[in-house]
Design a binder for these strands. Structure first.
Lengths: 339, 339
DNA sequence: ATGAAAGCGCTAACAT
DNA sequence: ATGTTAGCGCTTTCAT
């Protein structure tokens, strides 16, 4: 069943059928009605490949992201997939998704697939995909020659690449600043592996100390293992090892949960003797008791902004190469209040 | 830059270039090397539309799912997206994703888009999409005329539709049975809205009572509002209203968290005076103290099985129309142990 | 308002 | 091992 079959049944030319399908004005109401009737009756569905060949676009974007089922993946970034996709659909674009787990080898292959599909743009979600070594980012730079690249919480300074960042440095500055201003002296910085985003958080933490003329030692920066039990044990070992801290700044709520469990296990009172600040404002932050104070990255705004800027970019509008969206520190029960 | 440009530069026919691209054997090493060199040098990328037109497949599946960023969406089903996509890629299929939120009006439109794209199959993730009224499922049945439909935790008895179900009834039977066998007398059944999957859980709960000759009254079935604060309040009101219960079976971990908060707020000892069983074995189940006992739906196995059966179906193999994968009850700290 | 004809970039059947 | 030719199903000039 193709456009010729329909045109024959309707007694019109394929061109006219095409006009009806694409909602062109130059079709009489009568003809339109007849063609639509045939289409409905036969259950005909236009072939998107052929449409794509003609239009040279299939109105499709590619999304490259970390597998949401991977335990190490940041939950707010999984939500990003939904946000981006929803916004794209509002503009009549579909999305092909590539979840690649933490296996970087697939990155280039995925990007190549997207280019074969002539996607109108590529979204890369998460700073994880942007590597330190210039050369490992080459496939991204190459792809930018052919299609605009939208980086969600990642940054790369290059033509046709647009970055949309959570203000991780600013949020960390504010969050750690709050800890210091409410009496905390020694902040333990817990992270889950140093991506670009984590580095910015560490910068913010350092800045919070520096601007208060306080010392922040690298001895207080630790990578915490995955898993609640492992993480809790790890923190306990730090304490047993002699590290003194009265606050934990975790770059991920799941790590904050570990800190909380460590405190409860050791009968350390929260927030009197230990303050905990999480990150991502995930479901986890509200299911503990006490509930976790946490940084909300405002991922939804980041995604909405990215899509709307992409649309204007596709209309040949000018778009800034780097946009930073403010995050927000949500105070709950694991931090003290200023007086 | 197309296949003709390449063929010209390489001094061979387009067919030969096509052979090189598709890895055909019938090409001399010399020619292959030359063509590959030109391809690399020019940065040529084959056009997938045109390939699709020729092959009449673009090796793409469609995934229809609930927006993972929607708070009501089940977290294990969001993971399903990653699992399905990963398995498909292993078989060299890509996936177009359609996250539609709880706005059912879009369902038909998404399915239609997938058909235009001539997807090789459609995955529908979640019983939410399968409605009670036959007529509302019509677009799914129609789509099944054109492409196989894979239902993840949903069931529809129809040609070319294959169902892959978590054993929600069985798991609930076992989970509630455990509550009853460890001394609980009155089980409060909390759900978040009655989808097909929730109904099966309720069936299991009823069966657990019936098989033990115990009475289970509908007064103990309640829909709990979204949100930790609201849910906790809701349960408290039930208790204040005079409902007596010594166990909660929640169809979602987030609801179990509410039950836990209710208990802690009212100084009810867990599990001595109240047992709580959650569902989905989500991150939430391990970040509370005490940690939640919960049902693991084994979504990964469900997805892996669905994809592998789809692949064999596409090879014209016979595939059962309905496959049920066992779930597992994970005992943690909110339930008692049998002695 | 409608139609005829020429592509879009690739693959496949059939030569050679 | 390589080339020729004819589509795949649609859109888009350009006529009428």
């Amino acid at each position: 069943m193709n456009i010729y079959d329909i045109s024959q049944k309707a007694g019109v030319s394929p061109t006219t059928v095409s006009r009806v399908i694409n909602g062109s004005d130059n079709v009489s109401e009568k003809t339109r009605a007849k063609v639509n009737a045939i289409i409905a009756e036969t259950g005909y569905t236009p072939n998107a490949f052929a449409q794509g060949l003609g239009h040279d676009t299939m109105r499709t974007m590619g999304i490259l992201c970390v597998d949401p089922s991977d335990s190490r993946s940041c939950p707010s970034l999984s939500n990003a997939i939904g946000y981006i996709q929803r916004e794209l659909r509002a503009h009549d674009y579909d999305a092909v998704i590539y979840c690649v787990g933490y296996n970087m080898a697939e990155k280039a292959r995925c990007i190549d697939d997207m280019l074969r599909r002539r996607v109108d743009s590529i979204f890369i979600v998460g700073s994880f995909f942007i590597e330190d070594k210039e050369k490992n980012n080459q496939c991204i730079l190459d792809a930018a020659e052919k299609t605009p690249i939208m980086l969600i919480n990642g940054y790369l300074n290059h033509k046709n690449i647009y970055s949309f960042l959570c203000d991780d440095a600013g949020a960390s500055l504010q969050a750690v600043g709050h800890l210091l201003d409410t009496g905390c002296k020694k902040v333990l910085f817990l992270h889950g592996g140093m991506s670009g985003s984590e580095k910015r958080k560490l910068d913010g933490c350092r800045e919070a100390h520096a601007s208060r003329k306080l010392v922040f030692s690298d001895d207080y920066v630790h990578e915490c293992p995955q898993g609640v039990a492992e993480g809790t044990k790890f923190i306990e070992n730090l304490a047993v090892g002699g590290l003194k801290f009265d606050a934990v700044f975790a770059t991920e709520d799941s790590l904050a949960v570990c800190a909380l469990k460590y405190a409860q296990k050791n009968k350390i009172h929260i927030p009197k003797d230990l303050c905990i600040m999480g990150y991502n404002n995930s479901v986890q932050s509200i299911c503990t008791s006490p509930e976790l104070s946490s940084v909300d990255q405002n991922i939804e705004s980041v995604c909405v902004t990215a899509v709307s800027m992409l649309i204007s970019r596709l209309k040949k509008g000018g778009v800034p190469t780097r946009t930073i969206i403010a995050s927000e520190v949500i105070m709950r029960e694991t931090t003290r209040t200023k007086h």
